[in-house]
Amino acid sequence: MSLISTILRRLVLLVFVVAGVAIITFTISHLIPGDPAQLIAGDKASAQTLAHVRQELGLDKPVTQQFVIYVKQLLSGDLGQSLRTRRPVAGDIALFLPATLELGIAALVMAIMIGVPLGVLSAIYKDGPVDQAARVVSVAGISMPVFWFGLALILLFYVKIPILPGSGRITLGIAAPPRITGFFLVDSLVAGDLKAFWSSLYHLILPAFVLAFANLGIITRQIRASMLDVLQEDYVRTARANGLSRSAVILRHALPNALIPSVTLLGLAFGDLLYGAVLTETIFAWPGMGSYVVSSIQTLDFPAIMGFTIVASLGYVLINLAVDLTYMVLDPQIRELG
C-alpha cells in the first residue's frame, strides 16, 4: 500500500522535475551567446550555408515554437539530434551511460564494502589504531583531488609496478561482450565470456577505487557516528544484558539501526560519484558520459547537453526513489506507517 504510494509520489515528482529541468535547459541554451549553426558550418561558411544549417536545425523558427517542438519530442522519448555526432542524442546516451553507471556502481559498492566495516570498527574500537587510521583515510579521501590521486595511482600501479591497466574498459584485442545491458561485467557473464569478464574487472579496479576513495571517508565517518549513537541505545544494552554474542549485538542489533540514518547519505554519495565520474573518466580514458558531456560542452552541442541534463535529473529522482525504498526495507516504522 504505502510502497505503491511512495512510488507514485516519486513519479509525480519526476514529471515536475523533468518539466522544470526542460524549461531551464531550454532557456539557458538560448540565452548563452554562441551560434551552434556557426559552430557546425565552420568559421568560413557563407551566409547561405549558415541559413541552410539554421533551417535544418529548426533554429530559424520562433523560440516558443522551438520549445513546443522540443517538448513534443521529449514526450516521445526523442532527445533530438546531436549537432556534433549527428546521431540521436538518446542513442548516444544509451551508448555511453552504461559505462558510467558501471563505474559509478562499482565505486559505490567498493565505497560501501570498505566504508561500512571501517566505520563499524572505528566505532567499536573508538580512538584505537583502526579508528585513527580510518580518520586519516577519511580526511585524505575528502581532501585529495581526484585527478591527482588518479594520476598517482596510474603512475604506481600501471607505470612503476604494472599490475593494473590504466585506461579503457577492456584490453585491446579482447572483443567487448555482445551488448545487452552495456555493463561489460554483466554482458560478458551473460555471454559466458570469462576472458572479457576478468579483463573488464581489471580495468574497473583503478578508476572505481579512485572514485570510491573520495566518498569512502564520508561514508566511514557517517557509519562511525551513527554506530556510536546506536551503541549507546537501551536496546543494545538489553541485547548485552541478555547474553547475546558480540557479533549478534553488533551485526543484528546495532548495525541495521545505524544504517538507517546513512541511507540518505549513500544516495547523495551515489549522485556525487556520477558527478565525480566525469573527471575520473577523463583520467582513465573511460568511454562514458563524462567524456561525452565534456566534448558536447566544448562544441556547444545544445541537444546533447540538454538531453544529458534531463537524463541526469531523471537519475536524481530515481536515486531518491531508491533511497525511499531502502528506508522502507530498513525501517519498519516507515514501512508500516508510510
Binding site: 537501551d234 548485552r240 547475546l244 542489533h253 541495521p256 539501526n257 516504522q333
Partner: peptide, 23 residues
Amino acid sequence: QHVRGRQVSTIFQEPMNALNPTR
C-alpha cells in the same frame, strides 16, 4: 555472555527504547 540472560537478567527502567525498533 553465558551468565547474562541465562542466570541473571535485567529489566531496565526505560521500556521505550529497550527493544530493538527494527525487529
